[in-house]
Computed example of a mutant assay.
Amino acid sequence: MTDHTKERPFLTDRETADRYRVSPSTVWRWVQAGAFPRPLKLGAGCTRWRLEDLEEFEASREVRA
């Protein structure tokens, strides 16, 4: 994860992919499979993930021992 994502409430598909160390196509595949938060369409050609949604997703996936 890059430092600037901590300051920005929205992430691009590349930033989202970098966060999980996968390719952007993998992120889109996860979305299509219903296994990942859906992005927001902010305008023509502008789709972003809310950082808050990603953090909630991560918290729901944590394994508690």
Rank of each mutant, 00 (worst) to 15 (best):
G34D: 12
R8M: 06
K41L: 10
A33D: 15
L42A: 05
D3L: 14
L42W: 08
Q32C: 06
A35Y: 03
Y20Q: 09
G45T: 08
G43H: 09
G43M: 10
R14L: 04
T16A: 15
S23R: 04
Y20M: 05
R29K: 13
R50C: 11
L42R: 14
R29S: 09
S23M: 12
A33C: 07
R29W: 00
P9H: 05
R8W: 02
P24W: 05
L40R: 15
L40A: 13
V31N: 06
G34V: 04
E7R: 14
P39H: 04
G45R: 13
K41C: 04
G34M: 04
P37N: 08
S23F: 03
T47S: 14
R8T: 11
T47D: 06
G34F: 04
E15H: 00
T16S: 14
T12N: 05
R21N: 15
R8G: 01
R19W: 07
R48N: 08
P9G: 02
T47V: 15
D3I: 13
L51M: 05
A44V: 15
Q32D: 13
F36V: 11
W49M: 03
L51Y: 01
T47Y: 05
T47A: 10
W30M: 04
F10D: 01
F36W: 10
R19H: 04
L11I: 11
H4A: 03
D13W: 02
P39L: 04
